[in-house]
Design a binder for these strands. Structure first.
Lengths: 182, 182
DNA sequence: AGCTTAAACGGAAACGGACTCCGAATCAGA
DNA sequence: TCTGATTCGGAGTCCGTTTCCGTTTAAGCT
């Protein structure tokens, strides 16, 4: 268990960087070769760091989760109006999907799998939990609604905003009405 | 523009039949070769009838849409309680996705594309429209909700019930609350 | 600094699956 | 029954992912 070689670490970082950009721009139909070329690296190197296409996609998703997390913490949570905070959060998720389709496949992979959730996902859950609890307290959210419900809605929102299946702003409004007390 | 040869017609039907079953059982990762083999036909024949994988998937989806349609007309519409009718409809869609994952890719393809909607899809829209209107009339559905909203929810439901992203029954309840008047 | 070697690199080739092509087989009208 | 247009079949092409292995390089040791 020794430290990885420094060039390896740099290459990994550059690959991820480039992949995030490419996925954001061209959706997740980007080819492995392109990523390698853009990072000025052989395919072999790419595969050393991300043993499979899926792995790369997931790493990109992880990256973007962390962006969502940061945004939610700094921009949404502080808002004292819980409904507004939830809207802020969900809107950000949707926008992040509309630009940069690359995430969506991974969302599916992450939400759809029973795989052990990464630390980032756990933090995300924590934020959701905070929002839901606040909602319980101030009457924005019905008592029987849980974080799991929220993340089910997030998953749905992700799909919708990816595929132009209607207007996701309406989806947000409708579902927030749906979890509000009657 | 002459009638297709009878053997061609038979082959086409058998291919579609087999494809429906295979997709239902193994999800949409079934290979073209498998479908051809299962139908006792060469790949060439398969490609004659369905010029692309996507075309086959869509044809399968069309098939299943028609099942949904039939069920909705005979089992859901007659229910005088509009909310129950909507629940019936949405539940059926979800169940159809849970078993037989094959549909979901196609749902995405159909809902996500701006392609001209087939006649079946139009009929489905009509049913949705009927339900929404009834809801407007009897106070189950808020006045500003449209069929488009309903089908956005159907799309979302499809994704959710495919991927085990939470409990779709709750999703149905939440969204029906969301489109109800305050 | 030079030596050593485990680790990382690169990219040619293997692999896998969708799709094409065209000679062989088959249907249906005269 | 003959004929030729239509359909069939499946070997082959294409293209993207993944593997393999000889070459290169960072970094610890002397």
């Amino acid at each position: 268990m020794s430290r990885p070689r420094s060039d390896a670490e740099r290459n990994r970082a550059r690959l991820l960087d480039v992949a995030v950009d490419l996925f954001a721009e061209h959706g997740d139909q980007v080819q492995m070769g392109e990523v390698a070329r853009a990072a000025q690296v052989g395919v072999g190197t790419l595969y050393r760091h991300f043993p499979t296409r899926q792995a790369l996609v997931e790493a990109v998703a992880e990256q973007r989760f962390s962006e969502i997390l940061a945004f939610a913490e700094s921009e949404c949570l502080p808002n004292p109006d819980t409904r507004a905070a939830l809207t802020c959060f969900l809107t950000h998720v949707a926008q992040m999907h509309q630009t940069g389709r690359g995430l969506s496949g991974a969302i599916e992979a992450t939400f759809g799998s029973t795989a052990p959730r990464g630390p980032l996902a756990i933090e995300l859950l924590a934020i959701g939990d905070t929002l839901i609890r606040r909602g319980h307290a101030d009457g924005t959210v019905r008592a029987d609604i849980t974080v799991d419900d929220l993340y089910m809605l997030v998953g749905a929102l992700a799909m919708i905003s990816r595929g132009d299946v209607g207007d996701w702003r309406r989806f947000i409004d409708i579902t927030l009405d749906g979890i509000a007390p009657r």
